[in-house]
């Protein structure tokens, strides 16, 4: 049923530098999380993407949010039905 989603997330994990990926539905519930991504951060990532979209509401495309830390960074983007978070290391 969700095998194709799992395959796509595994393909994202195989990209260089990617150490985690999570997919969240529009209600902030975790659909899948791999690597260092935790299902507990699903709601937070969805909310961050929602708030970032409010910064420039006239922009039709949702912004890519980059959260930096010492070890790496996280890219978050939202579309109509889901939010995707990709964790990368430096």
């Amino acid at each position: 049923m969700e095998a194709q989603l799992e395959d796509q997330l595994n393909a994202i994990m195989a990209r260089p530098g990617v150490v985690g990926v999570t997919c969240v539905d529009k209600r902030g519930l975790c659909l899948s999380a791999k690597g260092i991504a935790s299902p507990n951060m699903s709601g937070v990532l969805s909310s961050i993407a929602d708030q970032a979209r409010k910064v420039d509401p006239a922009n039709s495309s949702s912004p890519i949010v980059r959260l930096e830390s010492d070890q790496g960074y996280c890219l978050v983007q939202k579309r109509s039905d889901f939010t995707l978070g990709i964790f990368k290391k430096y």
Partner: peptide, 11 residues
């Protein structure tokens, strides 16, 4: 990744 995941979700 967004395009691939979106296609996977709709499938």
């Amino acid at each position: 990744a967004m395009n691939e995941v979106e296609a996977a979700l709709y499938s």
